[in-house]
Simulated scan of single mutants.
Amino acid sequence: MPIHPRAQALLELIESLGDPPIETSTPEAVRALRNSRIRPPTVSLDEIRDVDAGGVPARLYRPSAEQGLGLLVYLHGGGWVLGSLDTHDNLARSLADESGCAVLSVAYRLAPEQPFPSGLEDAFTAARWAHANARALGCDPGRLAIGGDSAGANLAAVVTQSGSPPFRFQLLVYPVTDARGGSASHEAYKEGYWLTEAAMDWFVDHYLAGGDGSIDDPRVSPLLASDEALAVSPPTLVITAELDPLRDEGEAYAARLRSLGVPAEVTRYDGMIHGFFSFGEFLDDGRRAVAQAATALAEALAAPAPALQTSTS
């Protein structure tokens, strides 16, 4: 279907800012530009504080003072090059507020200064730290989930394939699962919908700038992982945007999970573009997608019902 009118208006607003194409800029320049446009928070929570997640900077969001909360380890998007705790602050607040679960947002190292596998190593470290220290955070180590958007979802998928720590749920929002590109959606939406083919090449080139890994490496392209690795994934929600180059690879990832017996739901938001999940201020479907993700998270991490006590009198 055609682009949603509100998504079109958002694209026109972005175009009016006159930013140069990302592939013609430096990471430092793009970060500075995006940081200058961070919108102030709109959601208040019981507790928000920065923590050291095993040497990885992170920020904890708690929606209530209740102990034993479910915990989502969240990895922000930005092509492994952009993004921070601050760029995704509003999103983390919304997920915590609407799900009733705590969120641990992770500031993994960024390329090209710290190329692959640095960010992935930080994702593993933070996830394992969250599991080991959940009770100290007021959370239940048995109610742990992981998720992310775009490149962050890529990292989340790779972490879950290790099977450790044990996750009960995985949230993948328009994930990068095949860095080779080449899908029908890559070709159909390679220009004109914010995330372009040239921008994706720029992101991948920076991520792999250290010479380790490759686009064929399952740690870079988790869709290429073995059946054995994929089969240990937890129940998964994949959210995609119709007019997104990454659409097909995200949906293909869910299809592979289902083929291996992993419960995996896919929701495609028609008329939407890459990034819509973070643009709830402008897009109704962005708000709806966050609400869907929060509901799925809450259901997946719901505390088990107390055991019935029986009498032997």
Rank of each mutant, 00 (worst) to 15 (best):
M1C: 12
M1R: 14
I3N: 13
A7I: 04
L10G: 13
L10K: 09
L13Y: 11
S16M: 02
G18C: 06
D19T: 00
D19S: 08
E23W: 15
T26R: 11
P27L: 13
A29Q: 15
A29R: 15
V30I: 14
R31Y: 12
L33S: 15
L45T: 06
I48E: 14
I48N: 05
D52C: 11
A53Y: 10
G54C: 08
G54R: 10
R59A: 04
Y61W: 03
A65W: 02
E66P: 06
G68M: 02
G70W: 01
L71C: 08
V73C: 05
L75N: 05
G77T: 06
G77Y: 07
G78N: 01
G78I: 02
G79T: 12
G79W: 13
W80S: 10
W80R: 04
L82G: 01
L85T: 10
L91M: 11
A92E: 07
R93Y: 03
E98V: 02
S99C: 00
A102S: 09
L104H: 08
S105N: 13
Y108D: 12
R109K: 14
A111R: 05
P115L: 14
F116A: 11
G119H: 13
W129K: 15
W129M: 15
N133I: 14
R135K: 14
A136L: 14
G138L: 11
P141M: 10
A145V: 03
A145E: 05
G148L: 06
V158G: 10
V159R: 07
V159H: 08
T160M: 09
Q161I: 05
P165F: 11
P166I: 12
P166D: 13
R168P: 06
R168Y: 05
F169G: 09
L172C: 09
Y174I: 11
A179I: 09
R180C: 10
G181F: 08
G181Y: 04
G181H: 10
A184Q: 06
H186R: 04
A188L: 12
A188H: 07
A188F: 04
A188P: 06
K190D: 15
G192T: 08
Y193G: 06
W194V: 12
L195M: 10
T196Y: 11
T196D: 09
M200A: 15
F203Q: 11
F203N: 11
D205P: 13
Y207A: 07
Y207Q: 12
L208F: 11
S214Y: 07
I215Y: 08
D217C: 03
P218Q: 08
S221A: 09
L223Q: 03
A225K: 04
D227K: 04
E228L: 09
V238N: 09
A241F: 01
E242F: 01
D244Y: 06
P245V: 10
E249Y: 04
G250K: 01
E251A: 00
A254T: 03
R256W: 00
L260K: 00
G261P: 02
P263Y: 07
E265R: 10
Y269R: 00
M272C: 01
H274G: 06
H274R: 03
G275V: 02
F277H: 03
F279V: 05
F282Y: 10
D285H: 10
R288E: 14
A289D: 06
V290R: 12
V290Q: 05
A293S: 06
A305C: 01
P306Y: 02
P306K: 02
L308Q: 12
Q309D: 14
T310R: 09
S311V: 15
